[in-house]
């Protein structure tokens, strides 16, 4: 199925103008944002994620290049049209503790209501539906001040939903959340993108969740370029290593996350009865500066055989010791860091 193109950027230069100074953050960006998909924007601090999002949300103009919204230049849209096209969710704290969840979400109807902002029956239904969709039905009459950070964020998403915008842009929606709320939030956003056919674009530092739950990735690399594509294509192209410029912290394709790889280290042959034991034994050894391999390749390397979490057999130069916990093992074999 052909997906609808929402945003299209061609040769776009983002940045700021301060008096007569021109600060370019990115040059020649090319990207396409589709409806019905969740897109995660990844990049290190200062890579220009917010600048790009602000440009797309028309909070600041692009310095040059083309930016089309539904095939029409974004500069040709009026404020009111834009407020019906792009909904935003920010991380900034606002003074809304004195509004109930219902009142806050209802503010999202402002672009559609008349001069006094009076809500018609259809508006009210939309508000209730959005509150239900983000899972805040029980809290609809609670004040925002009584909500947790995650619930506040969800209320803001509901506000963006009732705006009835085809595009929702979120600035680091998972920034202040614990790990369970982060996954919940990303699943919610993905569900909104697919079920409501919205183009959901968010910036995040949570690489793990982005890789498992988003459809598309926009990766800002350290060469001031942006690589866009389906998650797996982007990951396998190896560009995740260019996300951060770091000597020893590299992207681990096996685990889909960043790991510290030390150059130095003692090689150890690791054997385990199942993959879970292998994984955690490797975790323990790598942390202590060992490098794991599966056979000794002719060099008589030390060997660790993990039979269960209580039976760890360490062989080194004809000596065989059985340890009964990782703690015991690690305190005896010492660290190579």
């Amino acid at each position: 199925m052909e997906k609808r193109v929402v945003f299209e950027g061609r040769n776009l230069t983002t940045g700021y103008k301060h008096d007569k100074q021109r600060v370019e953050v990115h040059q020649g960006l090319n990207f396409t944002l589709y409806a019905g998909e969740m897109t995660c924007l990844l990049g290190c601090n200062g890579a220009g994620k917010s600048t790009l999002l602000r440009t797309l949300a028309t909070a600041q103009p692009a310095l040059s290049g083309k930016l089309n919204l539904f095939g029409k230049d974004i500069a040709d849209y009026s404020n009111r049209e834009l407020s019906k096209s792009i909904g935003i969710v920010l991380t900034e704290r606002t003074q809304i503790g004195g509004l109930t969840v219902y009142e806050l979400v209802a503010l999202g109807r402002q672009p559609h209501t008349g001069y006094f902002g009076r809500l018609r029956t259809t508006d009210k239904e939309l508000v209730h539906r959005a509150i239900e969709l983000v899972g805040l039905r029980e809290k609809a009459d609670s004040y925002m001040a009584q909500l947790s950070d995650g619930e506040r964020q969800k209320a803001m998403i509901a506000k963006a939903l009732v705006q009835e915008c085809p595009i929702i842009i979120l600035y680091e929606p998972t920034a202040f959340l614990d790990v369970v709320s982060r996954i919940e939030m990303m699943e919610l956003l993905h569900q909104i993108a697919v079920n409501e056919n919205k183009a959901v674009l968010l910036s995040t530092h949570d690489v793990e969740q982005a890789l498992s739950l988003s459809d598309k990735l926009w990766v800002m690399t350290n060469e001031k370029k942006m690589r866009c594509g389906t998650v797996e294509d982007v990951v396998l192209s190896g560009c995740m290593d260019h996300l951060f410029e770091h000597q020893t912290i590299r992207f681990d394709l096996n685990k889909g996350g960043y790991l510290s790889h030390h150059k130095k280290g003692k090689d150890v042959v690791l054997m385990a009865t199942d993959s879970i034991l292998y994984y955690w034994a490797q975790n323990a050894l790598q942390r202590n500066g060992f490098r794991c391999c599966s056979n000794d390749g002719g060099y008589s390397l030390p060997c660790l055989e993990v039979q269960s979490s209580h039976v760890l057999i360490w062989k080194e130069e004809n000596k065989t010791v059985t340890y009964h916990s990782f703690e015991e093992l690690l305190s005896n074999i010492g660290s190579c860091v």
Partner: peptide
């Protein structure tokens, strides 16, 4: 009284208010 609607939008802060179409 005519300013009630934009005043409510401004509770959200300038960025949100602008996004809701408030000049």
């Amino acid at each position: 009284i005519l300013l009630i609607k934009p005043l409510n939008a401004m509770l959200l802060g300038q960025n949100y208010a602008e996004n809701l179409g408030v000049n």
